[in-house]
Amino acid sequence: MIMQVRMIAMLAMAGAGWGAEIPRTPDGKPDLSGTYDIATLTPLTRPSSLGERQSLTDAEAKTLADQAKAVAAATNKASDPNRKAPPAGGDGSEGPAGNVGGYNSLWVDIGEGAFKVDGKWRTSILIDPPNGRMPPATAEARRLGAERAKMSRPNRGDAFWITEGISPGPYDDPEMRPTAERCLLSFGSGGGPPMLPVMYNNLKQLVQTKDTLVILNEMVHDARVVRINGEHEPPEIRRWLGDSIGRWEGDTLVVDTTNFNDNPALNGATRNLHVIERFKRIDGKSLLYGFTVEDPTIWTKPWSGEILWPATDQRIFEYACHEGNYSFGGILKGARLLEAEAEKKVKK
């Protein structure tokens, strides 16, 4: 009898420990539904200056936020109406289009600070390997990386592939351009999985039922439908965001994603990518989003990260990317123009 009373008391305490504060669905599961803004100044990998340190001091976190604020204020300044035109072909620097002008802070939304987990400011999203950096790449990944590097140069407004005799060139066909330029996926790994913060449009919406979790990514309106307690699709079926199935492990929803096509959103990953995500309600206002990435073609070991997902009242507006993708035709046409110029030079 006494033992029973003790057990009930222990269960009650455990219950209070894990969940008295979190919203729950009618069937008792943690309710993950809501809209979240995952913008953060905490980078994916730990800056080497921070060595093995997993957390920032309050003062360092404040400095990081102040620096971001200062950059935003500087780029937000009104342009000087009397400034001179940039030099023909850009100023020679390595920014967009030779830095004739690009995004100012109106366009950029990378958050206002680092995020905290368990009361500590994180130095990186990556937590495993413990040094906060990517595990070593495979030989195959190094080979693929070298191929890509061959095709990529700072934009100096010239068709380097003609002058250097590289064929095919990086702008020969639409299919050779990044999926974001083509409006197929968010840039970065915004829609993921894993879902990582990007330069802007960092909102995620979760809609949860007992057998489904929809994860709407703001950029390119990708809605990933997770089948809770479902089984993976046969290997012939491949998806842009992979095939996601979920299961509850206690109060954590674990989402397992495989069956990617040849172009996953995650930089460098292949169709062998396997991502495990963990969605955990911390309180009424935030989730802790954890993930583990495996792709034996690219990385010698799995790697894992965590990001805080704070809820937001902001609304998600339509991101009709393809419908307004006038740039993509311009990118290809521009390449044809640069090629014609370069070919003239080569002939001379």
Binding site: P168, G169, Y171, D172, D173, P174, F328, G329, L332, K333, A335, R336, E339
Partner: peptide, 9 residues
């Protein structure tokens, strides 16, 4: 191909 194909190299 329909929308951008004409701009292939």
């Amino acid at each position: 191909e329909l929308v951008f194909g004409e701009h292939r190299r």
